[in-house]
Nucleic acid binder design. Structure first.
Lengths: 344, 344
DNA sequence: AACAAATGCTATATCGATTTAGCCCAGCGT
DNA sequence: ACGCTGGGCTAAATCGATATAGCATTTGTT
């Protein structure tokens, strides 16, 4: 009750018998530089900590243009992959005194634009963006703002920007090769309708692996489903697809949610995962680990990704570099029973 | 590049040939009230939309004390339950023009205090808090700030505050009764070391159901595990516990992560879930739905919870009420094969 | 015609911090 | 005694918006 209004720099100045300017200098560690005496300096520090002074970030932000806030735009915060990443990034950002404002795009460009807009006039210092389809223009404009932007999970090949991603091509290639090595002969892929680089890379990794292993490939082995469908519709589509392929003996799902829907679909078809149909998914998930049979996947190094993103951001905030930092991390294939029935 | 600094109210004023005050009145819908002529009003509106003017939220916040930002403190944003809820709340808040700043406590009171501190000096307008053990004092202090606070998932019985929770007692009671009705005779519970109301209620609902069904109950049927353990340790503890009980034929896990660890543990013991040992968990999860056998659970109405929380918050922001809004929603038992082997 | 009331708009202070420019005084040299 | 230097501090402007008080000018009343 005493402090409904919060302690301001003026209150400290008054108590210390000095000007607000002096208080500001001292509390910003500029005492030496601004030649404030030890005495006064100590006194101010003491009063500030006694009053538990915390600078009003709005006022500071208004004056300095820095809000110590990062805007985070993900595809879907309810998705385990993004949520886990958000946690890591929150932790890392916190170490540097930054807070995170988040939003989900649902892979919808209009929503993404809206989020960027809002974050902009909330004056965030930097952006972490999982871009949607046509967000390239906005990203370029953002770059002109001189606020750091780091793309995650995907990027635009024709836009020079910072990004942290995994090697989607290699991940898909490796897991598909693994399926081939296990003896699966006719392998299909279920992905989402998206021209974005991460999906393109996964698809290309998949097809390259098929070619290298001299396995059949044609368009009928590829199913693209729109992101925005409901669960029911996903399952319907997947079942229709899987049953349409003669001799199909394995399938690769290109995202975690597709993997989940896929498992559900396959089971409702009554097929036996592993012996009858090999299954692999991109991204790991508790479900994949504990499903019976457990599901082979391409796991992304989430902690590493998150740490890298924030690290790049912090470096750019402190010393903007001329050239973009583009980090590609290696995902790892986790072989489980769905592609190797011998496994538990 | 043209607008590195952003458009301010002054720019509009200059172009319109009026004062900033007038512009502010018009753009805040006070044209009528402040008797600004239609002509001028229209002109200003036009210029504002041509320049795509967006008010600087920092400046506005500094002046008005309202930041249109909600502070969200959850236990763990990487946990499916909290992440899904965060998504719903973000959506709802967005409808009212609010953004969300989030943080995870890891059920650690010091972290929670730190988060409250940070959110406070970032001047959030309202708080949604999943409180930790000893956060009652801070919550009371927050109330004195006259910023709305809504607790979620749990609350303090001795603190009069707004909250939105589910009926944990009833949920636990119902699912335990269900186990009893299925013929399970010796039912144990695995919960976390926590005196907090939600865990207490779940435990009490559990024991009450045992009594009502004339099933044995004693302390050896209750296992409490500290939240902060690693996965390995959780599994070790759970296995030790389950194997220590003679004649055990069912177990109820009091949170989703305990359920997940529990499934893992039971399977590594080689026990057959369902016939040999009945299993149920609090909270639903993709894993529970798709596990073989599928896992019976007490599902919380996530969308409803999230909407209620934001609704209460908005009402309190608009017309603070004297009495606390305390909403208790009903969870539902979803019966699956882990407690009813007949089910698929 | 004289005065009151309404109309339409603006000057200025303010929120709480940072930053620039510069004041005052002591000590020093010559 | 005068100017110069540097130490120690502060006044005032500023960020961009909002809120208060009030100034002209027109309109209405009798």
């Amino acid at each position: 009750m005493l402090s409904m209004k919060g302690i301001s720099i003026k209150d400290i100045a008054k108590q210390a018998g000095v000007s607000p300017t002096t208080v500001s200098f001292v509390l910003n560690g500029k005492a030496k530089e601004k030649r404030i005496s030890e005495q006064v300096s100590k006194k101010i520090q003491k009063i500030a900590s006694r009053l538990k002074y915390k600078p009003n970030q709005l006022a500071r932000g208004l004056r300095t243009g820095k809000t110590k806030t990062i805007g985070l735009i993900v595809e879907d915060i309810a998705n385990n992959f993004f949520a886990s990443l958000a946690k890591v990034m929150e932790d890392e950002a916190d170490k540097h005194g930054y807070k995170v404002l988040y939003g989900s795009t649902e892979d919808n460009t209009e929503k993404a634009k809206g989020l960027l807009e809002v974050l902009k006039y909330r004056q965030v210092d930097a952006y972490i963006v999982t871009p949607t389809k046509n967000l390239d223009k906005e990203i370029e404009q953002l770059k002109a703002t001189s606020k750091p932007v780091v793309l995650m999970d995907r990027y635009f090949p024709h836009v020079s920007s910072h990004y942290v991603v995994v090697d989607n091509y290699q991940g898909a290639y490796n897991v598909t090769s693994h399926l081939a090595n296990q003896g699966y002969k006719k392998i299909a892929i279920v992905t989402i309708t998206s021209d974005q680089i991460q999906m393109k890379d996964r698809l290309e990794g998949f097809t390259a692996a098929l070619k290298d292993h001299h396995l059949p490939f044609n368009k009928s082995l590829v199913k693209k489903i729109p992101f925005e469908l409901e669960r029911e519709a996903f399952n319907t589509e997947i079942k229709k697809f899987l049953t349409s392929i003669k001799g199909l003996d394995a399938v690769f799902f290109a995202t975690n949610y597709l993997g989940i829907y896929g498992i559900e679909s396959i089971r409702s078809l009554g097929w036996e995962i592993g012996p009858q149909i090999g299954v692999a998914s991109f991204d790991d998930h508790d479900l994949f680990r504990l499903h019976s049979p457990s599901i082979t996947c391409v796991a992304q190094p989430i902690t590493e990704i998150g740490k890298n993103i924030v690290e790049v951001l912090m470096q750019e905030l402190n010393h903007p570099s001329a050239s973009p930092r583009q980090i590609v991390l290696e995902p790892s294939v986790i072989v489980r029973a769905s592609s190797d029935p011998g496994k538990k």
